[in-house]
């Protein structure tokens, strides 16, 4: 497992990371999501030991990860703003990276180059942003890393390529039990794909859990009653948000749904009652709203 414990880092006076705790199991797809500028990229750079933490530790399978750790040679980081050396093609990039990654697979590389239909002799810096991401991804998978960090890689890819991308990622996760930490702003895309999610804001992890558990904890209900629904009577169910559209109420709550329904039926004539699940996007907005983000009124 990849474990980050109480990691803190300051840039001058700015707390870029504030006691970050992150836990990702082997073979898990971990979604690192957060507000713009919350520190996702910085956190990933710490895992790669590009930065050294001020406080806290990183462990991989209980072994500390420090600057000279051998295990970092089996971590691969695909950055958002990918830098390729001048005049490099995918072929030259592969040859170069092969020097550093001992598990680099020629067979995988060739297969993926075909699958993504990339011209491996074209200069990388002449490619479009999306094509550059594909190229970087191909090399990353060919390196067969134990931990793969992907910083906003799906953001900006077309729908067809995204499918191929997930296909390849799933295969690798299954075959090599690769641990993936993927950051993205496209929460609809990550929904159902991530096993575990960490929600970040201003250098802190606000919430981290298996996605399934998160969706079980925060629930949404839609209901309609005869008469006026008094929200104050239902405080014990911890209603986080309540919206009324027409005669239908939509409530987001963490309390027990069955009890909520029972009480509702006791106090009112219930015309409609449905439990809905929260999407990752909705959970994200709710959590960040709780931290005061995005709550400004127009």
């Amino acid at each position: 497992m990849l474990k980050i414990k109480d990691l803190s880092k300051k840039f001058r006076d700015f707390n870029v990371l504030d006691h970050v705790n992150l836990n990702a199991e082997i073979g898990q797809i971990y979604g690192l999501v957060g507000s713009n500028g919350c520190g996702k990229t910085t956190l990933m750079k710490h895992i790669m030991m590009i930065y050294k933490p001020d406080e806290g530790d990183i462990f991989y399978n209980d072994v500390p990860v420090v600057e000279d750790s051998e295990i970092i040679k089996e971590f691969y980081f695909v950055q958002d703003n990918i830098f390729f050396p001048y005049q490099f093609t995918l072929s030259s990039l592969f040859a170069y990276e092969k020097l550093m990654y001992k598990n680099m697979s020629d067979e995988k590389f060739n297969r993926l180059v075909n699958y993504f239909d990339i011209d491996k002799n074209k200069k990388l810096n002449k490619m479009s942003k999306g094509q550059r991401k594909q190229a970087a991804f191909v090399v990353a998978i060919s390196a067969q890393p134990k931990v793969l960090l992907l910083d906003e890689i799906v953001d900006g890819l077309d729908a067809v390529i995204k499918r191929k991308f997930w296909d390849v990622l799933f295969q690798e996760v299954m075959d090599n039990e690769m641990t993936v930490v993927i950051s993205s702003h496209d929460l609809k895309e990550l929904d159902n794909i991530c096993d575990r999610v960490g929600i970040m804001h201003q250098g802190k992890i606000l919430k981290e859990d298996d996605l399934e558990k998160m969706k079980d904890e925060i629930k949404r209900v839609q209901f309609a009653v005869d008469g006026e629904y008094e929200i104050s009577d239902f405080k014990e169910f911890n209603v986080i948000k309540s919206v009324k559209i027409g005669s239908v109420n939509f409530c987001t709550l963490t309390g027990n749904i069955d009890e909520f329904r029972k009480k509702l039926e006791k106090e009112y004539k219930v015309l409609l009652f449905d439990r809905l699940s929260m999407s990752l996007e909705e959970i994200f907005i709710t959590e960040l709203g709780g931290a005061g983000y995005g709550t400004e009124k127009e």
């Binding site: 797809i29 295969q171 996760v173 299954m174 159902n192 991530c194 096993d195 399934e212």
Partner: peptide, 15 residues
Amino acid sequence: SVRELAGLLKISPNT
């Protein structure tokens, strides 16, 4: 296979 279904439905293979 798990992988086929995961790719088809766009759901984590672990699920």
